[in-house]
Amino acid sequence: MEGNRIVMFIRDYLSFILLYSMMLMVAIIFLILQNTIDYKNGDIVYFLIIEMTILITGLIADYAKHIKYSNQLISTIKHMDELHDIALIDSPVTTEQKLVVTLLKKQNSTYLNKTEKSCRQQEFRNHFTLQWVHHMKTPISIIDLHLQEVSQENNTIDSETLESIKEELYKVESGLKMMLDTARLDKFEIDLQISRLPLHELIRNIINEHKELCIRYAISPHIEGEAWIETDKKWFNVVINQFISNSIKYSKNKSGAKSVLFKIGTQPDGTVTICVKDEGIGILESDIPRIFDPFFTGENGRITGESTGMGLYLVKQICDRLGYKVSVSSEKNIGTSFIIHLNNQNIYQTIMSDY
């Protein structure tokens, strides 16, 4: 193995050795012509011995200087399945070798970051699946309990029980939808269809899907303003659905009539804004910076016990991929306002950057 490395080293330095030999021959010829050395007395032999000694000594010193770097490279190549081994290459000598080591470490760091991100995403999905299964057990158990009560009461269902069954079924359906939307998020670009749609009509249709719960908990949805936007209908519906679901979830336990306002406006640059303002229990100020983090439920999630911590995370991911900006402000026990900025140019720029 060592012999192979010496051969490789000599091969790399062959052009230098040949150039040195040519220059040495030229120097000898020049010295002879100048009568500086006498080739008959063996002066040339002594001169050659000295020069070759210098050359060989220099090559040996250079080989000793590079051997550690070469050994590290060979070791890393043999253990490419262990990515962190690249960090062991710490003996570059020349500027070129230093650049190569820097490049390898940057590539390794980029790959490790992407791998770590992929692992985190997989952990998020697995954790969400476990949470989802756990949360689905409660509404299913309640439905089963109500059905047992109905069977014991000669198949009669009072209106309150019926409403409760409907609400639990709504929770099951919402949980199923969120799980499917989260699963499809990785294939977002493949599942994207952009079209021009009336924003006010989209919101109105989604509100109608929640009207029974709104009536039950005295929540009055309102829409102010009109606008047309270019978006993906299915993904945009997920965002609006989440806002309405949260408004109901965090307003239903407050007494009296409540409202949810969808205020649509258009900025001078053509950006359409939607402000979703509810009169729920609000968000604790210390929780606001983390509400878009996956699995973060905050104080409200602990109070209601219904939060998975994935709804607003899903909203933020969808808005980012559509080129929308979303912000939030809230006052505890007063209500919460979410504002989305929708720019038709941003959506195409964001989509193109993903390909």
Rank of each mutant, 00 (worst) to 15 (best):
F243K: 07
S109F: 07
F47D: 01
F338K: 13
T304C: 07
N155L: 03
S330D: 04
N344F: 07
H134D: 09
E123W: 08
E306Y: 02
E160R: 12
L31E: 10
G3I: 10
S245P: 00
E285M: 05
Q193D: 11
K65D: 05
D278V: 11
D158Q: 04
L197Y: 01
P294R: 01
Y63W: 03
L261F: 08
L180F: 01
N333K: 14
E2A: 00
Q349V: 08
R11E: 10
I67R: 02
I215V: 12
K187T: 08
D181N: 12
M178A: 04
N4R: 03
T129K: 11
T53C: 09
E173A: 13
L112P: 02
T129G: 06
P92M: 01
S75K: 14
V328I: 13
L31N: 13
T350S: 06
N126K: 15
V328C: 12
N108D: 05
E279Y: 05
Q97W: 04
I29F: 13
Y20N: 09
E226I: 15
I347V: 09
S337E: 15
Y217G: 07
Q107Y: 14
K105C: 03
K234W: 04
R321L: 14
S251H: 02
L314A: 00
R204I: 13
E331P: 01
K166G: 13
N237S: 15
V260N: 07
T110K: 15
T95Q: 06
E96G: 09
S70G: 10
K40F: 14
L55C: 10
I77S: 09
K252N: 04
L59F: 03
Y217T: 09
